[in-house]
Nucleic acid binder design. Structure first.
Lengths: 118, 118
DNA sequence: TCCATAATTCGACGATAATCAAATTATGGG
DNA sequence: CCCATAATTTGATTATCGTCGAATTATGGA
């Protein structure tokens, strides 16, 4: 994943409303939710939400499609997977022997300590 | 990982210099690098770098320790692991059957498509 | 103590982002 | 065509962030 895209994705997630939207759409699954539903559930005006949705979509984390008057948004799994993969590459890159691929279970990415104590 | 911390971590990584520093310190390993070395390798004035290092450290992604006149910085593996874990929880939460824990190899987090095409 | 090295903090400026309401666009139905 | 619904875009305002050089702090050595 190109650095510019990574930065854009991190920035997209680095904001309350947008993170809440992202998580909501993860839960909603591939059929997604309409902009109106999202606005209601997250509790922001529709204009503010449109900006945020555009940001997330531009960052490759969401995808959208129109059905008549409603626009559906859902998680872009591919884009999200790429972001995670980038993070894991970075985390393990210089320490492959310490970074289990079973990250959730082993928590093995690096020792608890990183060099002498402060 | 608490939402507030996650947002702070994402924001910390959502900037050119800081992402470069983070990646440099991943490569450097647990013995880290001095602030001076980092500034030189990344190519920014020391004052700018200090701000960035402070941001990354506050976000839980770096740790530091002083050795005489030099301050060493290294990746905080624990903090970084927590960020990745958070992302993976979010990515897989509603779709555990689709999200292999062997993310790097299977790339299995979600189908390529997420609902009807736009 | 004085001078030197390493790094952080301070202060100011320009750039960028979040937010809201109004205006506009896209689609549906009578 | 007119009116309604759903959502985006526009425009303006305020807050936040990145950057730099100067000032300050922390540590070392003569």
């Amino acid at each position: 994943m190109e650095t510019k895209n990574v930065i854009e994705a991190f920035a997209a997630l680095a904001q309350d409303t947008r993170l809440a939207v992202f998580r909501l759409l993860i839960q909603a699954g591939p059929n997604g939710l309409t902009a109106g539903d999202i606005a209601q559930q997250v509790g922001v005006p529709s204009s503010t939400l449109s900006h945020h949705l555009a940001t997330l979509e531009r960052a490759g984390l969401l995808r959208s499609w129109r059905v008549q008057r409603q626009i559906f948004y859902a998680c872009d799994y591919e884009g999200t997977r790429r972001l995670i993969a980038f993070l894991m590459e970075d985390c393990c890159q210089g320490r492959p022997e310490l970074c289990s691929t079973d990250l959730l279970q082993a928590g093995a990415c690096g020792p608890a300590g990183c060099g002498p104590e402060t």
